[in-house]
């Protein structure tokens, strides 16, 4: 069973005047453990598609099924709850809470889920060490580099073992080296944890690390390639 499935998905802006098909009839599935990259020119609908799949936005038409549940029909509060339990998010910026330390940020989702303190400590400590932030537990986001901040964000998204992680241009603010590092780290976690990643990028260099590349043009699915 796919983790994510969309059927005839549309997001149309200004439907009454000059319609913009930000997402145009996309039906696609993502299987567990896939490491998929969504690419396409600016304005091709990458962010819109990811937001629809993540339940941050509601489609004009079509369905989104995540972990067997239809999310486009949920109420706002139900969707917040669903996101907390099933989806990990990494954004391009404003990912972290400035007043919390790296550790507290990484533990944030698990704490919202009210997981036992002991479990949180073990999991978050292990993951932060794994991504090379062993010495930075007590640093505030403002004291971390962009790459380090994104790693904390990935750890936060991953720690609670969601069904999949959505990352909209997670490397856009990073230099080449940091971008590669982050991608390698995500790939590693994808293999170690067996967790599904769906991320978008502009960056030709990171595309080759993806196991599957989905290309959008003008909101429509242009190509869908799997590497074996």
């Amino acid at each position: 069973m796919p983790v994510i499935e969309t059927n005839g998905l549309y997001k149309i802006y200004n439907e009454d005047t000059v319609p913009v098909y930000a997402v145009n009839n996309i039906s696609i599935q993502f299987d567990p453990k896939e490491f998929t990259c969504v690419i396409g020119p600016s304005g091709s609908g990458k962010s819109t598609l990811l937001n629809l799949i993540g339940g941050l936005d509601t489609p004009s038409r079509g369905t989104v099924t995540v972990a067997g549940q239809r999310i486009e029909t949920m109420s706002e509060s139900e969707r917040i709850r669903f996101r907390l339990e099933h989806i990990g998010f990494v954004f391009q910026h404003y990912n972290l809470i400035p007043v919390l330390t790296a550790y507290e940020n990484a533990a944030f989702i698990m704490q919202l889920q009210a997981r036992p303190e002991e479990e949180i400590r073990e999991r978050v400590t292990g993951l932060l060490e794994q991504v090379g932030l062993g010495g930075r537990f007590n640093s505030r986001p403002s004291e971390l580099s962009g790459g380090e901040q994104q790693r904390v964000a990935v750890v936060r998204a991953l720690a609670s073992k969601p069904d999949f992680i959505l990352a909209d241009e997670p490397t856009a603010n990073l230099d080449t080296k940091a971008a590669f590092n982050l991608l390698d780290m995500m790939k590693q976690l994808n293999e170690d944890e067996g967790i599904t990643f769906l991320f978008s990028t502009h960056d030709q260099r990171v595309i080759e690390r993806a196991g599957r590349v989905v290309t959008l043009v003008d909101g429509a699915l242009h190509s869908d390639e799997r590497k074996s």
């Binding site: 509060s77 917040i80 709850r81 996101r83 907390l84 989806i87 404003y94 400035p98 919202l112 936060r156």
Partner: peptide
């Protein structure tokens, strides 16, 4: 606004 939006995006309930 961005920070609060992010909190709700990652699943912090309105009540919280």
């Amino acid at each position: 606004t961005r920070e609060i939006g992010m909190l709700m995006a990652v699943g912090m309930s309105r009540t919280k």
